[in-house]
């Protein structure tokens, strides 16, 4: 049957014409919606900071002597590479990425201390934000220290650590960029060309 015309005897159109008249919500409707979404955005920021604190707050770590030795070695390596890593290491939190020699791209070492993590990866614009990228999976070095060294192109980049495939954690020792209300606060890194 011709569904559109079957009922078009004028009555229905008269009804529809009345109902098509504009209706507008109260003058303060937009303000109320925006107040609501701003509240959601603020709550998200607080939630992220809460998660962040749980991951990065200094805590007592019980380690076996051989693990402590391994961790100390890893930290020492990072401190040597970063130059200013002493502050970060003193807090047992994380080390900023350290650059290693190359050209066109550089090998960058990313280090995060996350004692309770089961998995740590690095995702950034240099790997398509792919936390599963095999070249950016950090290895647990003991004592809660995770690190990975991977090649990153010369230029400005944003990145984040991804803990246990779900928690996005900005590098506490690197500059942060973009307060993204739907994702994470990312870290920034500038990879310089090799100086010969």
């Amino acid at each position: 049957m011709s569904d559109d015309n079957l009922f078009d005897d004028g009555v229905i159109e008269r009804i529809a014409d009345e109902l098509r008249e504009a209706e507008r919500p109260s003058a303060d409707f937009d303000a109320r919606v925006m107040a609501s979404v701003r509240g959601i955005a603020r709550a998200r920021r607080r939630e992220r900071h809460g998660l962040w604190n749980r991951v990065t707050q200094p805590r007592t770590i019980t380690v076996r002597p051989w693990r402590a030795g391994l961790a100390a070695a890893a930290l020492l390596l990072c401190a040597t590479l970063v130059g200013w890593g002493a502050h970060a290491f003193a807090r047992m939190e994380a080390a900023a990425p350290a650059t290693l020699a190359s050209s066109g791209s550089q090998r960058i070492q990313f280090v995060l201390v996350a004692p309770n993590a089961k998995k740590v990866a690095v995702a950034g614009d240099f790997n398509g934000w792919d936390a599963q990228h095999p070249a950016y999976q950090a290895v647990h070095r003991g004592g809660g220290v995770w690190s990975v060294t991977a090649r990153v192109p010369v230029g400005h980049h944003r990145y984040s650590f991804v803990v246990d495939d779900s928690l996005w954690v900005a590098d506490p020792t690197a500059p942060r960029v973009i307060d993204d209300d739907f994702g994470t606060t990312n870290s920034a890194i500038v990879v310089e060309p090799e100086i010969r």
Binding site: R38, I178, D180, F182
Partner: peptide, 11 residues
Amino acid sequence: RVVRGDVEAFG
């Protein structure tokens, strides 16, 4: 824009 963090753009 909103997804990148510009909440006001939602208006």
